[in-house]
């Protein structure tokens, strides 16, 4: 019990004194996951819109498939990307393995299904009455699409936030593709919050793990607060 309390205390100390290593890991973690989220959103929102607005055979199956991929294990994504970018893989010549770029690719793929699926739900959640009203008010096709998206904006924002949450909290792909490398320069390093926690715990550096864990929770909290505030506006 005492050990945990002491560890917590020192962890808080590390955060308050803005320990350079803790700060670097946090910054890297946020940058990688944020980039992945932006890229995934740029793909998921248009794809989600196309799925929602078009009628085609097997639409239900496609949506079911996407929903199944919500639970995609992170290590599977890691493994999949690893096979492509490892030295022997088809994209090996790009020398991406164990770089932040590789982690961004992994996290993007990981959160694409959930963001696409939630975008589809967000758009289909826009009431038929709203759609009818838009048509009735004389919207062109483009005006119609833009305004349904606009009505669904908060739900889509929530989809993006869920994506970011999954990206920053996953460990499987990050460790497989990043390798948890501790290097001198910021961008050669691939240690992020989750991988660092996993490593530091295994070597008994509990206070650092706890500090990083607290930060991870704080990031989640801040994102959540932001989303709620925007939704209530």
């Amino acid at each position: 019990m005492n050990e945990i309390a002491e560890g917590l205390l020192r962890a808080v100390g590390l955060i308050i004194t803005m320990n350079p290593e803790v700060m670097a890991i946090t910054a890297r973690s946020i940058m990688i996951s944020f980039t992945a989220t932006v890229i995934a959103a740029l793909i998921a929102i248009p794809v989600g819109a196309v799925i929602n607005f078009s009628e085609f055979r097997g639409k239900k199956t496609v949506i079911n498939l996407i929903q199944t991929l919500y639970a995609l294990p992170t290590v599977i994504v890691g493994l999949f990307v690893f096979l492509f970018i490892s030295r022997a893989g088809p994209l090996g010549f790009l020398r991406l393995l164990f770089t932040p770029t590789a982690m961004i690719i992994g996290q993007t793929l990981l959160i694409l299904p959930i963001m696409t699926g939630l975008t589809v739900s967000a758009l289909s959640g826009v009431d038929q009455a709203i759609r009818d009203t838009l048509h009735s008010l004389g919207a062109t096709k483009v005006q119609f699409l833009a305004n349904v998206l606009k009505e669904a904006r908060f739900a889509i924002l929530a989809a993006v936030a869920v994506g970011f949450g999954r990206a920053i909290s996953e460990v499987g792909a990050a460790i497989l593709l990043g390798g948890n490398i501790r290097a001198a320069s910021f961008w050669s390093s691939t240690r992020v919050l989750t991988t660092a926690i996993s490593l530091e715990t295994s070597v008994g550096n509990i206070e650092l793990s706890l500090a990083l864990g607290i930060i991870l929770l704080l990031v989640a909290l801040v994102v959540n607060l932001l989303v709620t505030t925007i939704q209530q506006r």
Partner: peptide, 18 residues
């Protein structure tokens, strides 16, 4: 579109945009 823009409709359940 031209024809529809000559009309207006009020629905039973008023749908307001957010």
């Amino acid at each position: 579109l031209e024809m529809r823009r000559r009309m207006g409709m009020v629905f039973q359940k008023p749908a307001v945009f957010n």
